[in-house]
């Protein structure tokens, strides 16, 4: 097989912006986001589906961007970590709660965890802690021991939206 670049035209939405591009067929979605669009908030830890750092939303569902091909998002709506804060850079409630509860240390796992939880909380607005920990099982964090992460989410779940200014 020659290593010549073979590309395909795709059109999709990323963080609300319609994007047309020619992408290499062999590129993972993660590589395309990072290298073609400079959306480097999506992290690659293992590249074989285990660590969860690369999690993004495709049509609202949390998926591993290291295991999906860029060409497969043709026609889809992609949301990355860069799409969570508002335009002025103000953190959303979940991000703010992570900051308040020390839900991150080195921050490598954090984008993937926030994207996983964004999808999870959209489907399950009031999870109990056991259910939440199960949802987190697909994301590895080597720093926090997960307690700060769980505290942050339970706080968001418990606090009425109005209190947090949304």
């Amino acid at each position: 097989m020659s290593e010549a670049e073979i590309t395909r035209a795709i059109t999709f939405t990323v963080n609300g912006a319609v994007t047309d591009m020619h992408v290499e067929e062999r590129f993972s979605l993660a590589d395309m986001l990072r290298h073609c669009l400079a959306l480097t908030g999506t992290h690659l830890g293992c590249e074989h589906g285990v660590c969860g750092a690369c999690t993004v939303l495709v049509d609202g569902e949390a998926i591993r961007s290291c295991l999906m091909l860029a060409v497969q998002v043709d026609g889809s709506d992609v949301t990355t970590i860069e799409g969570l804060a508002d335009e002025d850079g103000r953190l959303n409630r979940l991000q703010q709660a992570f900051s308040d509860h020390h839900g991150l240390q080195c921050g490598f796992c954090t984008p993937g965890i926030l994207m996983t939880l964004s999808a999870f909380l959209a489907d399950n607005p009031a999870p109990d802690e056991g259910h939440l920990r199960e949802a987190l099982s697909g994301n590895i964090c080597r720093c926090t021991g997960y307690q700060g992460i769980v505290d942050a989410v339970m706080d968001v779940v418990a606090a009425p939206a109005a209190k947090a200014g949304q």
Binding site: E47, H48, C66, M68, L69, Q72
Partner: peptide, 22 residues
């Protein structure tokens, strides 16, 4: 792709053509 892409990224599996059933 949750097994196949992982095996391809690890180069346990090397293919010339992928046929996407999605």
């Amino acid at each position: 792709g949750q097994s196949l892409m992982a095996m391809m990224n690890l180069r346990y599996v090397i293919v010339d053509h992928l046929i996407d059933l999605n």
